[in-house]
Design a protein around this nucleic acid. Sequence first.
DNA 1: CGTTAATATGACCACCTGGTCACATTATGG
DNA 2: CCATAATGTGACCAGGTGGTCATATTAACG
Lengths: 233, 233
Amino acid sequence: MDFTKFAQGTFANLAEDKQQAIIRAALFEFASQGYQRASCNNVVKAAAISKGSLFQYFGSKEGLFLFVFGRFVGKVKAAVKEATARQEDFFALVQAILTAGLHFIKRYPQYFQMYLQVLFEQEVPRRRELLAEVRLFSSDYFGPICARAREQGVIRTDIGVEMVIFILDAAIDRFLQAYARPYLDAGLGLASLSEADLQDKVEELLVVLKNGLQPPGLYSGSRGKGQGARGER
Amino acid sequence: MDFTKFAQGTFANLAEDKQQAIIRAALFEFASQGYQRASCNNVVKAAAISKGSLFQYFGSKEGLFLFVFGRFVGKVKAAVKEATARQEDFFALVQAILTAGLHFIKRYPQYFQMYLQVLFEQEVPRRRELLAEVRLFSSDYFGPICARAREQGVIRTDIGVEMVIFILDAAIDRFLQAYARPYLDAGLGLASLSEADLQDKVEELLVVLKNGLQPPGLYSGSRGKGQGARGER
DNA sequence: CGTTAATATGACCACCTGGTCACATTATGG
DNA sequence: CCATAATGTGACCAGGTGGTCATATTAACG
């Protein structure tokens, strides 16, 4: 919860640049190694401080990690707040979040890499809690928004809200990951695109999310009943 | 490449049940810990063999891992071959693959967990190679299929093939992950669904993939150019 | 049986980890 | 100047890792 508990204490009294050096070293380590593989020895080496000091400042590896992740959470919240400030239209909001995500990755690539490590790693202290803090497309945050969009007739009513959130989450998460980790992107080549081309891809993605993969003419009825034909039941 | 190099050698001469015990122990370890965190000591303990034997059989931790992953690859290829045997329609094929994936997870949960570990972990021997071996929605495999579907007018032509593959990959991957790892599923609750309800969700997902999130009436034009009116409209 | 080859074993090795703590250094303030 | 408090330091610890190898056990064969 309170990731800023080191805001006062010995660490806070350090010169600004020394603090920055330590944060940078720790962030680099967690971003490149994840939590478990990250080595405090590497951090103290890179930050040019002694091991004893590091543990004096943060108490434990876990404390250091929570502190660094807390900084990330702060930056995310600020970015989201700004991006979603005045978006009325549902899909415009989705697009704004996606675009904000891309900008965030460009500005704070290391923080995002650290986030991905936490997302992919199993054994990370307070993992759920931490992820919940930055995950937008959760039922909590996005459920009401979807519900409202549904009432306004912007999204179809024959699929569940959970499915809407699920598909948005899957697409956007993957898109951001593909941007941040080129080898995940199966051929989109996002990482090497110009700003303008990237925006084109974003719009292309939104077209698919809105209208699907089938050509407009071929609308294949609502789900259930006859549609299946195949199995039994 | 050749993950079966232990098919002959000391290990192959072992009694069948002893082989199984070792495979089971190793699979459990890799599935629950990933590659790096997996401990050879744990494996020999669980398999009730000596450490020297394990290294005699497989040479190294990496050798053991590649062997076990090779078994997984074999099972996947068999499952895919069977599932895609005679699917003509494009979306029926997608659905068949998704359904086959769910069945695979149900039958071989540990193998799938191990796959996810490899997917999420960075430093795994021959990672790319291994993942490529089991990844279906790659440009290589799925590109031609999409191209054909496009010519037949089953999928729209105003979005790139890469984007089609991307979105299919994202949605299906995530769906399978949500099924295998409940905490990833933001509210769908796939893991606890009955077979029939699960199929319903599969169909629901396919409806979205085909027709998008917007109601049929609201088709919002092809991408690019004019679409941008974004502010108002 | 004896001899030789194959296999099984676990103590041992070098190395790394997060964390500690007695001690050295520096700051503070009177 | 001293005395006290705060901070910095790195040798050290217990516990883990993947991997080795001399030795013990078993199998094979004549």
